[in-house]
Write a protein that binds this DNA or RNA. Sequence first.
DNA 1: TAGTCAAAAGTCAAAGATGGTCAGAGGGTG
DNA 2: CACCCTCTGACCATCTTTGACTTTTGACTA
Lengths: 158, 158
Amino acid sequence: MRNISDVIEQYLKQVLKESQANAIEIKRQDIAQRFECVPSQINYVINTRFTVEKGYLVESKRGGGGYIRIRRVILHEKQDVLSSLMDVIHNHPRLNEQLVENVLVRLVEEQMMDEQEAQLIYHLLSDEALNLQVDDRFFIRRQQLLALMKVLRYRNGG
Amino acid sequence: MRNISDVIEQYLKQVLKESQANAIEIKRQDIAQRFECVPSQINYVINTRFTVEKGYLVESKRGGGGYIRIRRVILHEKQDVLSSLMDVIHNHPRLNEQLVENVLVRLVEEQMMDEQEAQLIYHLLSDEALNLQVDDRFFIRRQQLLALMKVLRYRNGG
DNA sequence: TAGTCAAAAGTCAAAGATGGTCAGAGGGTG
DNA sequence: CACCCTCTGACCATCTTTGACTTTTGACTA
């Protein structure tokens, strides 16, 4: 594994998978110690790898007895997945390639589209294809991702 | 061998051949060091020798733990269909919905994509999703259709 | 109860680690 | 000589790591 962030990410996902409940509670300091890094590294991992669009919810508490709780969001209805992703799209002012990728990966994970389709759309929404001013790029991505959600909704009998 | 680029090219192809998977991951700096050249020489080799037309796909990541991944892919046999469609796209100043549809239908007929994929893309490129000034719409459609062609060159057997 | 303190976790910006781009210099070949 | 590859290095973009400083919380004390 190339960097410590990836290692920590894998570790947390492993623990999450092995836990009965779909949530784990960690102590930031403990994890930092286990991987010999500074505590704020854990925040970095969480902020970049356990985001809402990837299907995670994170809560925490400071002070004595503090913790960080990571929850895997499990939505049984495909419609719920779509509306949650639509929220994400609406709430993100800056729809960069990374976010597009996260959304598409999630859709594949949730079996709402296959990899080939995701691949195609990723390329259509890439910086290279959307060779425009950044803000215009964000705008187009929003429009097209929402259009995608619409098609997927009715493809899945909505 | 006359120049360092050729040497590096051969080396990478050798490593690729010996690897089980049809992909390798390198560190630019490592390769540059091994052949005692500047790092950007590696980009030169990749840009001139590992192109899509030659059957290679390259991805990379910057920053800590960065890498360059080179993958061998199989080119689609219908390159001529793609180039003729690219001509069409280039030569049409006004890429309206009808033209998009025609292109997509042709791609489906040629079995370069399936109906579902065509459907998806049609919606992404619709007037409704591309809620912009007409000229901008034409521009985006051109960019994205060309991006689509690029992906289709190697899909289905990579 | 209010105040104080220590123990968490959060934020943010700087530094570090890679890879990418581009334009110009260098060199070989028809 | 002209032209086309190659090679190089300065500068840029992106992702990760680190640490100083901040905020929140609960326990203890006056």
